[in-house]
Design a protein around this nucleic acid. Structure first.
Lengths: 357, 357
DNA sequence: CGAATTTGATAAACCGCTTCATCAAACGAC
DNA sequence: GTCGTTTGATGAAGCGGTTTATCAAATTCG
């Protein structure tokens, strides 16, 4: 049916060995092919429309040039999470660039975790894990079958390769921005406790206030969550404490949580940013849709995907020089929800004029 | 390194033929294995932890049990489109259920279309195309290499397999809902002209008004788009025409467009739904976030993915009884942006009491 | 010019699995 | 008891590539 290496050899009047060597014109091979035969082979291949069969190649070489991508429990992510999209986009970019392919798996909650892990077959050389649960059976399977993997994660895991973003600095940046704008009473709506990103962000937030000589008021640091309803509820509670104790700024757990905060603030007749400034986290596309558009900490999501793919490929190709747990830098995307662009911070960083003193 | 069929055969004291037959205990094979040897083989396999090598299997059988999934130009979809997520989720469900695997491709705009098509390698048995551009080189490649494909599409393509949703009825449903609520002056913000979903939806809209004896006012049917900015702009123009000519309801191109409409209405001091009712399209997760939550036409996106996978697999397995161009039904998700649940329509359909006469 | 080396080419083994062709033994029917 | 049929089992030939070992011819060199 399909045209094989033998057909090409026959037409070119050579051996299949020569064809194989000529077509993978990598210098690594010990086989030598003269320029003349090489060209006859090229011609024959072109004439027949020969395409190498990657399956046969894989069987012979033991390499497949395929990576696996394990997405988290689909159901939870289906609708609401642009995160996966963006990570995939970054991964894809690198994978295509390096001439690899991607096999998709999801840890569907419908089937047992074991089953999901079983599905990772030997066609893949390595695995990319997006936000794997800590106890995932995948880790064991990978170790057992000796499949290298890299996780894209909210926390570093000891002894395993992963890509992380700099949550601590993210917390600092949000806080610094607000401090620069003159805020003294800043609230922080923390993300859910079981997601470990929440801790370093909160630490960054606290450290920044201290550095600025602002006393951290514990009653302004509240447990909230990544949902807008939670953000709204928490904010309502903050606002009910009376004017004296109300914050002048809120650092929310993420963009959706910030949306909830904004709604609560408005519902109580106050204005964002005039009465209360709001900062989000993640910089998803949603951040441009809030009213006013949200100032938010930008996570380099695509870059994280790209980096993960790069690390995995490097590892597969025997490059040991790569950092197994890189921390990618975050940045602050300034929009209108704080009413201002940056003002000088206590450490003397230069900046634009302050808006609120 | 890995344990092979030969190792199992040796341990069980049989031939590799027997092992192969026993382990694929499909009745299709002509090879017969006694119960006794079968069990010895099972034991040996379990003891060695044998896992079949799918690559070798593929090479021998010519089947890979892998489908390709081609996503549209990544850049445009990265952030804002939950559509791909949902389609993927549906596809994944079916693919896992049928014990297939999924290889991911994207028609990245960075590389030429030809390159993208080249990347579809012979490891896949069939291809699922999400919203392929009409002129895509993929179609040719697939035909040439004889790879069956199914598209998930906004329009049926003659002579090719595709899954569509019933846009015409979607347009009707939106209009009927508004007519039932007593609206006479209903505007329609049409989607962009180059996306062919826009036409049937508009037809459904028009036909419904006519059926209800409401004159279709051409100046209320305007070209808009799938972006919230476009929705806002179009709506502002509608509102500037003065009270007499203002619509009492708007059927938007999609949920984001509806968001724009809502903003424009609010900005001009009017209320949704009291002054103007708004209906969206798609029922993405975003529809719950608008204020008020959006009444919108629900597209069965996941089901479309599932159906596409089912069709492709059926086709691969020689099932000819399947409809090559199914049209999936839409429904109306009623929330608060029209202020009411359904009222009787002119055709006599029964319903709940009307809110506006 | 003869020996050593390089160059060009190939046959054959192999990757791990399926499957066809073949065959001996057991079984049933007459 | 003989003959046809079923049952159980196997060797060997692929599938389409890569790679090792081998070899003849051409080239280099003292």
């Amino acid at each position: 049916m399909a045209v094989t290496i033998r057909d090409v050899a026959k037409l070119a009047g050579t051996s299949i060995t020569a064809v194989s060597a000529a077509l993978n014109n990598s210098s690594g091979s010990t086989i030598r092919v003269s320029q003349a035969t090489r060209e006859r082979i090229y011609d024959a291949a072109a004439q027949l429309g020969y395409v190498s069969n990657p399956i046969a190649k894989s069987l012979a070489t033991g390499k497949t040039k395929v990576l696996g991508l394990m997405l988290p429990y689909a159901d939870a992510f289906v609708d609401q999470n642009p995160f996966c999209n963006q990570v995939m986009s970054g991964i894809m970019r690198e994978v295509v660039h390096r001439h690899y392919n991607l096999m998709l798996y999801t840890a569907t909650s419908g089937i047992q975790k074991d089953r999901a892990a079983m599905l990772v077959d030997s066609r893949i050389e390595g695995l990319l894990l997006v936000m794997p649960p800590e106890d995932s059976a995948i880790f064991l399977k990978c170790k057992k079958r000796n499949i290298p993997y890299v996780s894209i994660l909210d926390r570093p895991i000891a002894g395993s390769w992963s890509v992380n973003s700099d949550d601590y600095t993210g917390g600092r940046m949000a806080a610094e921005h607000l401090v620069r704008l003159g805020h003294k009473r800043i609230a922080h709506l923390m993300g859910s406790q079981d997601v470990s990103t929440s801790q370093p962000r909160a630490r960054g937030f606290r450290d920044t206030l201290e550095l600025a000589g602002i006393e951290v008021q514990e009653e302004l640091i509240v447990q909230s969550g990544f949902d807008w309803r939670l953000g709204m509820d928490s904010t309502q509670q903050l606002l009910q404490r009376g004017l004296k104790h109300m914050p002048t700024a809120i650092f929310a757990a993420n963009d959706l949580c910030a949306e909830g905060a904004i709604r609560a603030i408005r519902a109580s007749g106050l204005s964002v940013p005039d009465d209360i400034a709001v900062v989000g986290y993640d910089d998803t596309w949603y951040a441009t849709l809030t009213q006013p558009p949200l100032t938010t900490v930008h996570m380099p999501i695509e870059e994280m995907g790209e980096m993960a793919a790069r690390m995995l490929i490097a590892r597969l190709e025997g490059d040991d020089s790569i950092d197994p747990q890189p921390v990618l830098p975050v940045s602050l995307t300034v929009r209108n929800s704080c009413g201002a662009f940056s003002a000088p911070f206590v450490d003397g960083t230069k900046s634009s004029p302050a808006v609120r003193q």
